[in-house]
C-alpha cells in the first residue's frame, strides 16, 4: 500500500467516526420524536429521512455540490463560522455522510423506541419519574442493542460511501480522498494490484462488521431487517 493509500485509510476511519458521533447525536432525539409524536406532518419527515435509501447517491451529491458553492448562504455561513469552505473539504464530506447514513441510524432506533411499552413509561411517570429520567433510565437502557446496531450501521455505511464523495469531494489526498475514491483512482489508472488490496480491505471490514452485528444476537438482526420490537 502506498502512503496515499494509508492516508485514505486514516481519512476514512476519521470520517466514519466523526459522522457516526454526529449521527447518534442527531439520530437518537429524532428517532425518539418520530416514535412518540402524533404530529400530522410526521410522515413527511420520515420520508425525507428515508430518501437516501432509494435515491442514487449522485443525486444527493449533485444538490449538495450546488448548496456548497461558495456564493450560497450556507457556504458563506460556514465560512464565516469556521473559516473554511464547504466544497471539496472534509467538513463537506461529514455533512454529506450525515444525510446519506441518517436512515440507517434512525430506523433501527425508531422501531425499538416504538416497541417500548407505553404502560411501562406511564406507570414510571406516576411513580415520579420525569421525561428525562424516563428517557435516560428506561428508554436508553432498553435500547442498548438497537443503539449498537444503529452506530455500527451508520459507521459501515459511511465507510462504504462513494457517489456523494465523488460529487462533492474531489479527490484531495488527506482531505477528501477516502478509500472508495482511492480504489476508483487506482482502477482508472490501471493499477490493479493496489485496487485489489483496497477492495479486499473494504470487503473484509464490511463482512466482519456485519458478522459481529448479526452474531451478537439474532434479535439485533431482526431489528435491523424488519424493525420488530424486542425485549432485552
Amino acid at each position: 500500500m502506498s502512503s496515499n493509500d494509508w492516508l485514505a485509510l486514516w481519512l476514512t476511519a476519521k470520517l466514519a467516526t466523526v459522522s457516526t458521533l454526529a449521527l447518534m447525536a442527531i439520530g437518537i432525539p429524532l428517532a425518539w420524536w418520530l416514535a412518540r409524536s402524533q404530529f400530522r406532518g410526521k410522515a413527511i419527515i420520515e420520508a425525507l429521512v428515508a430518501l437516501p435509501i432509494v435515491l442514487p447517491p449522485t443525486v444527493i451529491g449533485f444538490y449538495l455540490l450546488i448548496a456548497f458553492a461558495p456564493d450560497t448562504a450556507m457556504a458563506k455561513a460556514w465560512q464565516a463560522a469556521f473559516g473554511r469552505p464547504l466544497a471539496f473539504s472534509f467538513d463537506g464530506l461529514v455533512l454529506g455522510s450525515i444525510i446519506y447514513s441518517l436512515p440507517f441510524v434512525v430506523q433501527p432506533l425508531q422501531s425499538r423506541f416504538e416497541g417500548i411499552s407505553r404502560a411501562t413509561l406511564l406507570s414510571a411517570a406516576s411513580l415520579g419519574a420525569g421525561p428525562m429520567d424516563r428517557f435516560f433510565n428506561i428508554v436508553l437502557p432498553l435500547s442498548k442493542r438497537a443503539l449498537l446496531a444503529a452506530a455500527a450501521l451508520g459507521f459501515c455505511h459511511t465507510v462504504g460511501e462513494f457517489g456523494i464523495v465523488l460529487m462533492i469531494g474531489g479527490s484531495i489526498p488527506g482531505q477528501t480522498q477516502v478509500l472508495s475514491i482511492a480504489l476508483f483512482d487506482h482502477v482508472e489508472s490501471m493499477n490493479f494490484r493496489s485496487a485489489h488490496i483496497l477492495a479486499m480491505l473494504l470487503l473484509l471490514f464490511s463482512f466482519i462488521s456485519l458478522l459481529i452485528l448479526y452474531a451478537k444476537g439474532a434479535k439485533t438482526a431482526r431489528v435491523v431487517q424488519r424493525g420488530e420490537p424486542f425485549d432485552e
Binding site: S117, A119, T120, S123, S126, L127, A129, G130
Partner: peptide
C-alpha cells in the same frame, strides 16, 4: 401538573414493571 409531579401511583391490569 404533569403525571410525575402529582404524587399519584397508578397500577393497571398490566403490571408494567421496568423490564431491564
Amino acid at each position: 401538573l404533569a403525571v410525575h409531579q402529582r404524587q399519584v401511583a397508578y397500577v393497571t391490569q398490566q403490571a408494567a414493571l421496568i423490564p431491564h
